[in-house]
């Protein structure tokens, strides 16, 4: 059974604009799937549907056997087990770095402050930011903030991680430090769904690459196949543009 199972999902923003068209995609346990595509293709919307931040109109989404779209599902409980990293970090600016990592551990998982702080320190150490534990998010650089955001998601001991364009709001020199953390995570066997344009990241750790355009999943192929010879013309065009831009 896949960890994340997206089956025939459609979504409309209003009766005339369909943002997702019959999307079907599985992410197995321990698999890293990169979702790419031009802006406006619906890839961010799709990943936000996985933990129910966006509602779907048709189809089903199942995470670890639990239906995300079912009204009886306890969404907060499910979301506590699925980590998410946002394009604009979304750290809580009124809380210190440590408190950013502890808040949900204590409120949603019921951990004691001591347990939460210990976990937070271990993770900050891991992302190389232990020295900044007492600072506030506004005192950190973009790359540091995004690493804190990853640590905050990992503090919940997630069964899967969702990344929504984690490097596209960063200055170029800060992208690598964030990617390094993500690569480590992928090599440890974390289940990951990553919306990104970082084809270098996809090349090094992705198992599969999914290409979306205009709300449709146009291509879903193993990494080697996708980079070797994409079947669709749209994916080929996109790939040539992205690869030219990044070299």
């Amino acid at each position: 059974m896949p960890m994340i199972e997206i089956a025939h999902v459609s979504k409309w923003y209003n009766p005339t604009f369909q943002v997702l068209k019959d999307c079907t995609l599985d992410v197995a346990k321990g698999e890293v799937v990169v979702v790419c595509g031009p802006s406006g293709s619906g890839k961010s919307t799709l990943i936000k549907c996985v933990n129910g931040l966006e509602k779907i109109d048709q189809g089903t989404i199942t995470v670890d056997g639990i239906r995300v779209d079912a009204p009886e599902t306890n969404l907060p409980k499910l979301r506590a087990r699925v980590g998410m990293v946002f394009q604009h970090f979304e750290l809580f600016p009124h809380l210190s770095v440590t408190d950013n990592l502890c808040l949900a551990q204590m409120k949603a998982l019921g951990r004691s402050r001591d347990q939460a702080v210990a976990k937070a320190m271990a993770l900050l150490d891991r992302v190389g930011l232990k020295a900044h534990a007492r600072k506030f998010p506004g005192q950190l650089s973009g790359g540091q903030q995004q690493r804190v955001a990853i640590a905050r998601a990992l503090a919940m001991d997630p069964i899967a991680m969702l990344f929504d364009e984690p490097t596209s709001a960063l200055d170029p020199e800060m992208i690598q430090e964030v990617l390094d953390v993500m690569v480590d995570l992928a090599r440890e066997g974390m289940t990951m769904m990553v919306v990104t344009h970082e084809m270098g990241f996809a090349r090094s750790v992705a198992h599969r690459v999914v290409f979306m355009d205009q709300g449709e999943i146009v291509e879903d192929a193993p990494k080697a196949e996708f980079f070797g010879k994409p079947r669709s013309e749209r994916a080929q065009t996109f790939l040539s543009r992205v690869l030219v831009a990044s070299h």
């Binding site: 936000k48 933990n51 931040l53 969404l75 907060p76 409980k77 499910l78 979301r79 506590a80 087990r81 699925v82 980590g83 998410m84 946002f86 604009h88 979304e90 750290l91 809580f92 600016p93 009124h94 808040l103 949900a104 409120k107 949603a108 998982l109 905050r152 998601a153 919940m156």
Partner: peptide, 26 residues
């Protein structure tokens, strides 16, 4: 910002928790 609420929700916080620990203090 809406993203702050989304981040709180994504961490598994309930509406009441997001409101009292993230939205109102800010």
């Amino acid at each position: 910002p809406r993203g702050q609420i989304a981040a709180g929700q994504a961490l598994g916080l309930t509406y009441a928790q997001v409101t009292t620990t993230i939205v109102l203090p800010q």
